Computed example of a mutant assay.
Amino acid sequence: MLIFLLSSSGHKPHLNMNLLLFLFVFLGGNSGVGKDTAVSMAMRGARVIIACRDLDKAEKAVREIKFKSHSLNVFHMELDLANLRSVREFCKNFIQREKRLDILINNAAMPGVLDCTDDNFSMCFGVNHLGHFLLTNLLLPRLRECAPSRVVTLTCSSYKYQKLDFQDLNYNLLPFFTYCRSKLANIYFSQELARITEGKGVTSYAVHPGFVQSSWTCHYSVLFRMLMQVIMWMFFVSSEIGAQTVIYCAVSDEAAKHSGGYFVDCRPATLRPFARDAGVAKKLWEASERLVKLV
């Protein structure tokens, strides 16, 4: 099926859109930036596939997205980013089932929790970086076949509070710092992906959606959840607002000129100097290849 996405500039990019979108599956798959992005993409005519480990939440999200977007072209597939075998199985099934992949939005995330994935990586590093890293690499041939295509990876401005330690990439001691490192890894990943795919029709963007009201506090105590609900209500933006920069990088003609860029509020933003180090980005890519056994 030939489907067009309407860009924010009002032009129709000539892309046959099959949008693979990751909801915040670990933070409540039926809400958040992911669902609002999916609604917007479905309204633009995209075929939307959400990937989620909780099939009940995925089915509920699909129903809600269909209802809000007035589109029946929304589907889900099972995927657990905390399990690399699940990532490989998902990619195998996806490639067998789907002939196109035009936009991949890496939106799943874990907050800072002291827990481990099924492959014994810290949950933050394993899900937020390694899961997306393996998935994107396995789907990269299909993205290249469908060029021009895009990869949008969500990150957070909290990247600025930590640097990577290559002696301990799997850092899992202080939850907030663990989260910050995983978000910095997302930025390096997006930059190196842009370098690797330069001239091959695939562009890459890192997006900070802002501090968004969501259900990420479900992993913490009741008292902490109550406190954060008040803070989020007072200072955080809605998920609909948070989704706008993700949507912009997915469909805007202007964004296409800034592959490897970091976006905030629908415009390129300046990173701290250490987060623009191409040598570190390449080193992380090579280390990640070894960790997920791509080499």
Rank of each mutant, 00 (worst) to 15 (best):
F24D: 11
A38Q: 12
G34W: 01
N18A: 12
S31D: 04
G29T: 04
M41C: 13
K12C: 03
G45D: 05
L23D: 13
V33G: 02
A38H: 12
L20M: 14
C52M: 09
T37Y: 02
K12W: 11
P13D: 01
L5H: 10
L27E: 15
K12N: 06
F4Y: 14
R53V: 03
S8H: 06
N18I: 02
G29S: 11
K35N: 07
L20D: 03
C52W: 02
N30L: 05
G29M: 02
M43D: 05
G10Y: 07
V48A: 08
F26I: 06
H14F: 06
V25Y: 00
F24E: 11
S9D: 13
R53Q: 06
N16Q: 12
F4N: 05
L20I: 06
I49V: 15
P13N: 00
P13R: 00
S40Y: 11
S40Q: 15
R47A: 03
R44P: 00
M43I: 11
L27W: 00
M17V: 15
I49T: 13
V33T: 15
S8R: 09
K35A: 09
K12G: 01
L27Q: 14
L5N: 04
L20T: 03
L5Q: 08
I50Y: 04
T37A: 15
S8E: 15
M41T: 07
H11N: 11
S40M: 07
L5I: 13
F4E: 12
F4D: 08
V33M: 09
G32Y: 07
N16M: 03
F26M: 05
I49G: 03
R47S: 08
A51V: 15
R53P: 01
I49A: 09
L23Y: 02
N16I: 00
S7A: 10
N18D: 10
I49D: 03
K12I: 11
A51P: 04
N16L: 00
N18R: 08
M43E: 15
I50P: 02
A42L: 15
K12S: 04
L20R: 07
M41K: 02
M17S: 13
A42K: 09
A46N: 05
N30W: 00
A42P: 10
K35Q: 13
G10S: 03
L5T: 09
L19C: 09
A46M: 10
H14P: 06
L27F: 00
H11P: 05
L19I: 04
V48N: 13
G34D: 06
D36C: 07
G29D: 01
M17D: 05
N16C: 01
F24I: 02
V33L: 08
G10P: 04
V39K: 00
L5A: 14
A42Q: 14
D36K: 11
F4K: 15
S9V: 01
L5C: 12
G34S: 05
F22C: 13
G10I: 03
L5S: 11
L19W: 07
